[in-house]
């Protein structure tokens, strides 16, 4: 398993005339079953929602992030595309990618509806394999503790 932490590297990127450099932190696991682009998107998303990445701050470019994380360009592109679709970030042609202006309350709600949606998926999957509600909540508890 390789873990990359670009915390220090990302603080070095960005020009002087651009908005404050974000303190983006991404750690990737090769052994996880979660796709790599999803790992990247999830972590940046959490940092935006958690306020660590402030509105208007400039993110590393797709290509420099790919370089720092040693992943393919398509992977980081997909992660950014997903975040863009969710309205969390904006790409300004020629300038870079910024954390979008968002109402924090709205953000939180949005995230919660996403959690709900995923849980619904889990419930239907569980039904398919005949898991009881207790089994499922036990599973959920174990997963939560693992994190």
């Amino acid at each position: 398993m390789y873990i990359y932490d670009i915390y220090s590297m990302s603080t070095m990127t960005g020009d002087l005339d651009t908005p404050e450099t974000p303190r983006m932190r991404v750690i990737l696991s090769n052994s996880s079953s979660e796709p790599i682009y999803e790992q990247i998107a999830r972590q940046i998303r959490a940092q935006i929602i958690g306020g660590e990445l402030e509105e208007g701050s400039l993110l590393s470019s797709i290509r420099s992030l790919a370089r720092d994380l040693q992943v393919s360009v398509i992977t980081t592109k997909r992660a950014y595309e997903e975040l863009e679709r969710e309205g969390l970030i904006d790409t300004v042609g020629g300038k870079g990618t910024f954390v979008a202006a968002q109402n924090p309350q709205f953000l939180r709600e949005k995230r919660m509806s996403l959690v709900e949606e995923k849980l619904a998926d889990a419930v239907s999957e569980a039904r398919l394999v005949g898991l009881s509600l207790d089994d499922l909540s036990e599973m959920l508890r174990l997963l939560a503790e693992e994190e």
């Binding site: 090769n30 290509r63 790919a66 370089r67 040693q70 992943v71 393919s72 992977t75």
Partner: peptide, 26 residues
């Protein structure tokens, strides 16, 4: 990876060591 930071650059490489490509190849 450093070369690829320039979006006009491309890489095509053949290998039988597939682990080299696993995360790196688009």
């Amino acid at each position: 990876a450093a070369i690829l930071e320039d979006e006009r650059k491309s890489v095509l490489f053949s290998t039988h060591v597939t682990s080299d490509l696993e995360r790196f190849a688009d």
